[in-house]
């Protein structure tokens, strides 16, 4: 049943020619020899077997040529494989500050921008992990789903490749996270879900969004990683303000986002990176942590079976040819004229 559905043809209408394969049942490629009566011919099981074989070879030759012409193939199949990896949502900050360098300058030849570094390292990360299923989302002024959970890693690379195009103004990290939590699908096993948030800043999360995030975290547990690309001079995740200074989500959004993410009760790690090398270290660490048994699909491309059909046809025709070449006529030496008539 499943084996049959794995087969297909490119041009089904060619199969309309299949009745031609019945021709060998009706006529023989061998010359007819006249005999006075059926009774003259002795019953011979070997002869009738050979006769049947000649008919079968003819039918087989015609049918396999037709199947080959119709483009008989083994359909593209996806095989479920076990691997170790994770279902990962990459949530990437596309605010315009990502377009400047870690030293908060316009990128020049010597130093790449944060988005270019993130692009390079994330592409590397994705291509090291073939067993992952990955979804990509971006957020800036608004959250944007880009590629839903997929095994097609080229699409993931294309989504990552778009991140060093110019970004937008703001950093709405709360709604971005909410989107990321919603991107796991039914087929991503619960034990191996991870959200990787890549951003170079944070923002105040609206209280309604905070509640929704707590809900989402309670409903579907994921591991959460925050890769914070810290710009030189910017406030860090762990910098507590000096006593007397204001300590609120408005003045220290990064610190308070960290506190909030910890409070979600999820397995959570924050990585603060001041340079591309540190980003690379952090990504390697995530790589090691997210190695759980997962199922992923591997596609086996369509396989054309028509050469095999043509080969089979050639074999069958060779049998017919052998039969034809070994034929001997009863009346060969007696009446060549009669043979000519039978042949017409």
């Amino acid at each position: 049943m499943t084996a049959l559905s794995a087969l297909g043809v490119d041009l089904p209408w060619v199969l309309l020619l299949l009745p031609l394969a019945l021709l060998p049942v009706l006529v023989s490629p061998l010359r007819l020899s006249s005999a006075p009566a059926d009774e003259v011919v002795p019953r011979d099981p070997l002869s009738s077997a050979i006769g049947a074989a000649i008919i079968a070879a003819g039918a087989l030759a015609i049918a396999s040529l037709i199947f080959g012409l119709a483009g008989f193939h083994l359909r593209e199949q996806s095989i479920e494989r076990r691997g170790s990896g994770a279902n990962i949502v990459l949530l990437i900050d596309r605010s315009s500050s990502m377009d400047s360098t870690f030293a908060d300058r316009l990128p020049d030849g010597a130093e790449e921008s944060k988005s270019a570094a993130a692009r390079r390292l994330l592409t590397d990360f994705a291509s090291r992990r073939p067993a992952d299923r990955v979804a990509v989302a971006a957020f800036s002024t608004s959250p944007m789903p880009i590629v839903p959970m997929t095994d097609e890693h080229e699409a993931v690379r294309a989504a990552i490749a778009a991140i060093d195009h110019p970004g937008l103004a703001k950093t709405d990290v709360g709604r971005g996270l909410l989107l990321a939590f919603s991107m796991f699908d039914a087929s991503s096993s619960e034990s191996s879900r991870a959200v990787v948030l890549v951003s170079d800043g944070a923002a105040v999360i609206d209280r309604r969004v905070q509640d929704a995030l707590r809900d989402a975290a309670a409903r579907s547990p994921v591991s959460l990683y925050w890769l914070f690309l810290r710009t030189e001079g910017a406030k860090g995740i762990y910098d507590a303000p000096a006593s007397g200074e204001e300590d609120s989500p408005f003045s220290n959004p990064e610190r308070h986002l960290n506190i909030f993410l910890k409070s979600l009760g999820l397995p959570y790690r924050a990585f603060e990176a001041n340079s591309a090398a540190q980003v690379s270290d952090a990504i390697r660490e995530i790589d090691q942590l997210e190695q759980r048994p997962t199922f992923y699909k591997e596609t086996i491309p369509k396989r054309d079976l028509s050469p095999w059909c043509f080969g089979l046809a050639a074999f069958a025709i060779a049998l017919l040819l052998a039969a034809k070449l070994s034929e001997r006529r009863l009346d060969e030496d007696v009446a060549p004229a009669g043979a000519a008539r039978a042949q017409s």
């Binding site: 839903p148 080229e154 989504a159």
Partner: peptide
């Protein structure tokens, strides 16, 4: 503004993901 979501990719080879991206 125009905002790039997905860099050019082979549509045939990644049709499911491309369709998913468009419908998102």
């Amino acid at each position: 503004r125009s905002f790039m979501l997905l860099a050019p990719l082979d549509v045939c080879a990644n049709f499911t993901a491309f369709t998913g991206a468009v419908s998102s």
